[in-house]
């Protein structure tokens, strides 16, 4: 594997974990007694664990390709923090989640570009490019579509009914009905 390609792929591990931390903070925010949106909280806690699984998938791929023999410690910085700890409402959190995912997708596309034509080698890493495209980009687009749909539904419910709309949407989210 080309060095620049490996470095980019390694940095993706931290990108995924950072996303996990922000989702964790969202889960914590919506679990507060004065916020009380258990559906949102559950959704974001689950998203946090999914992001952690993505990081693990990348690590497993690196191991499969013979990497990480002496530098696992450098994969993650010591204290990884969420982007923020409070959100003004559900739409704002979902919108930030969508921005976050769009950013992750951009990162993956950058890795694909580089690993197909590394600037430091002639090695076109077909397999990694295929894996990232097939596994990760598919997940990303599905996730982005899901978030966009949720933002639309919630937005519509709130235009006429405001807080009631969010209350109802939250209960639907809790039962995976939306």
């Amino acid at each position: 594997m080309a060095n620049s390609c490996v470095d980019l792929l390694k940095s993706q591990v931290e990108t995924e974990i950072k996303a996990a931390m922000t989702y964790l903070a969202m889960g914590a925010h919506f679990a507060r007694d004065t916020v009380n949106r258990p559906g949102f909280s559950k959704f974001f806690f689950e998203s946090a664990s999914e992001e952690r699984e993505h990081a693990i998938k990348i690590i497993e791929y690196l191991l499969m390709r013979g990497q990480l023999t002496d530098d696992v410690s450098k994969l993650l910085s010591n204290r990884l923090l969420p982007l923020r700890e409070t959100w003004s409402n559900g739409v704002r959190a979902l919108t930030e989640a969508l921005e976050l995912e769009t950013n992750v997708t951009k990162h993956i596309q950058d890795i694909i570009k580089n690993c197909e034509k590394p600037n430091d080698s002639n090695f076109n890493d077909y397999h990694l490019v295929d894996y990232l495209t097939g596994e990760f980009l598919t997940e990303q687009y599905k996730g982005q579509r899901d978030l966009a749909g949720k933002i639309s539904t919630l937005g519509k419910m709130m235009t006429a009914h405001g807080v009631l709309g969010e209350f109802l949407f939250d209960k639907k989210l809790l039962n995976n009905e939306v």
Partner: peptide, 13 residues
């Protein structure tokens, strides 16, 4: 995260 990285190290070839 520490345990995750320790675990990963033992997974290298």
């Amino acid at each position: 995260f520490e345990f995750l990285l320790m675990s990963s190290y033992f997974g290298n070839y």
